Amino acid sequence: MEAVLDELYTTPPADFVARRETLAAAAKTAGGLDNARRIRAARRPTLAAWAANLLLRTQPEESRHFLELGRALREAYQALDADVLKDLSAQRRRVVSALSRQAAQLASEAGHGLSQPVQQDLEATLRAVLADPDAADQWAGGRLVNALTPPSEFHPGSAPAAEKPGTCNRPAPPSPSASRRRASNDELAERRRARQEQLARAREAAEAAEQRLRDERARQADVDAELQRARERTEQARRRMSAIEEQLRQAREECRQAEHEQQEAEAHSRSAAEVVAQAERAAHETTQQLRRMTRGAT
């Protein structure tokens, strides 16, 4: 049943209702009335939501890495300084843009190009997946009905909120004793180390995602080049076929002309044969008459 619903939500929206009815009828025939009702309850996705579902189902490895990148970014985002945030934001925009183009390509190959507003909704959905754990969970289910809206800022999810570097969220110790100061400094140092580790993981995840997208784009370029070569070969074959068809048309015309000339020649031949036959009969009669006249004279 889950596989049936997964397949339904990768069906283009224009075909969704018809496909839903077909699957529901099949489930009912098989005796699964509950399954049939569940299928009929499925809502048709928007074009942007369908493209996001299609990306998740057809590119599972890329989608898994994208979800991992979102988790790493959410964990590290609140603990970073302005320069690092700017760098990660730029990486995030590049990853979202590249992945949304890949989804648009998949949609186009499925026969449904995405308009600019739909493309924007798709990018907003992917930004939401990176920033919001709830949105990430919805997309990971592969059955989005509507595009997702990204939050105004990253949500840390279950990760502990980190304080800005150089500060401590806990109240100051009641006593300025050296042991308490050392404990506080050790705790702060540990938190800083944890933030650095989160930052390193986020950077590694972002770099890995960009590298995978570069590899995918390179593979896509190879596929596009092969497609272009195939199109050129098809066009050449069509031109050759057109030339052959023209030669065939000319040959047929020449054949019809030759048949017409043959018919005329045959008619002329028959007429000539008739004339020859008449001449032969006249000559025969003349010869017979001459013989009779010769016998009478003797």
Rank of each mutant, 00 (worst) to 15 (best):
P176F: 12
T46D: 11
N146F: 07
R44A: 07
D15A: 13
A27P: 09
R212L: 09
A103S: 10
Y9R: 04
G111N: 10
Q257F: 06
A52M: 07
E62M: 06
A272H: 15
L148F: 01
R193C: 04
R233N: 08
A36Q: 06
E232P: 00
R43C: 01
A267H: 14
A24V: 07
E253K: 07
T125V: 03
H155I: 02
R19F: 04
E235M: 09
K164Y: 02
T58W: 12
L23P: 05
C255M: 11
V118E: 15
R143F: 09
A221N: 10
L54H: 11
R93D: 14
G32V: 01
E210A: 04
Q91L: 07
A162Y: 01
P133Q: 02
A265G: 06
Q59Y: 05
S89L: 09
A230F: 08
T149C: 01
D6R: 13
R212P: 01
E187R: 15
K164T: 04
T46F: 02
A251N: 07
H112E: 15
S271L: 15
C255D: 10
Q236D: 13
D215W: 07
V223F: 14
A124L: 06
M241W: 14
R94F: 08
A131L: 09
Q211S: 09
A124E: 13
C255K: 10
A42P: 06
E61K: 14
T149V: 12
A52E: 03
R233L: 13
N53W: 09
R38W: 01
E232Y: 01
T167Y: 15
T286M: 14
V95W: 01
A26I: 02
V223T: 13
V145K: 03
Q198E: 06
S242T: 08
A147M: 03
R217K: 12
E163M: 04
E266G: 00
L88K: 03
S108R: 15
A218S: 12
A30V: 04
N53C: 06
D137F: 04
T58P: 03
R37M: 08
A297L: 15
N35E: 13
D132V: 00
E245G: 05
D83N: 03
A24T: 05
Q278E: 15
L5T: 05
E204P: 00
A205G: 02
S158R: 14
Q119T: 07
L85P: 00
A79Y: 00
A221G: 07
A272I: 08
